[in-house]
Amino acid sequence: MRIRIPRFSMAIPAMAWWAAFFIAPLGAIIYFSFGIKPSDPGAGVVDLTSLSFSNYIAATSEVYLTVFQITMRTAGLGTLACALVGFPVAYVLARHITTRWQPILLFLLVLPFWISFLLRTFAWRIILAPEGVLSHALQDIGLLSGPLSMLDTNSAVQLGIIYNYLPLMVLPMFVALDKIDPALIRGSMDLGAGPVRTFLSITLPLALPGILGGMVLTFILASGDYVVPAILGGAKGLMIGNLVATQILAAQNLPMGSAMAVILILMICGIVLSMLMLLMAFRWLLRTIAGPAVDARALSVAVAAETRERT
């Protein structure tokens, strides 16, 4: 005897929790973004009697747009750098490391996540300090003529972002590369494709979803970052997260901060969508360059057939 209960019943508590503490707050942000800050401080945090787009108009003025632009550029470049620096690492981890060392190296890769993110970022202030060891070393070997002046600029923020999100980028790429059946690579080589062609027509297309996933994740996190620019950026390296935080925590202007948060989300959505389209185009380009002769799927069928014959 079985009692019929809905299949999702075990997920109901989680859904209810998210509905109450995630979806409702998101709705509250959107609602608040149309209000105004009451002129009388005793009247609460927001005046919702007349809803208008005034915050959106103010938040898209030139001063803010510049910061939005800088934020998107910093996050975009950071994501790209993470992908370029991280891909070889993911590739080595998936291909050239024995199964004995692989878990240890993966553990080391995620280890920085378990150490106060704040202090790791502060540590860069010690490393990059104008009177620090690195600065002196660079001057001694003649790479720098004066003290290192990277702190409190956008380039320090850029470095901090690459540093913080690099492991996050490597992991999904590793998972994607690790899942590729070595038989496919062998098959491609057996059929006469060189290493470069095999890489372009087998490895890269199959790893593309992982690369894409990592890039989307990194970009979203980086563009909403508040801590790295607050610590390393000073006044010159502000990102949109700092402006939003200032609006809310210092200026007590909740409606304005909410509107900026909504714009941030919309911008991220737009850029993630265009990234997706760009990568689709890239995939198409790969296929045209490498030629359709080595189609990964056809190859896998061929490899499977061959293995069956052998056994």
Binding site: F21, F22, A24, P25, L26, A28, I29, F32, V45, I220, L221, S223, G224, Y226, G241, V244, A245, I248, L254, G257, S258, A261, L264, I265, I268
Partner: peptide, 12 residues
Amino acid sequence: PELVSAIGQMIW
């Protein structure tokens, strides 16, 4: 973005 979620939490 955590920031957006954080603002929502605070308001809510």
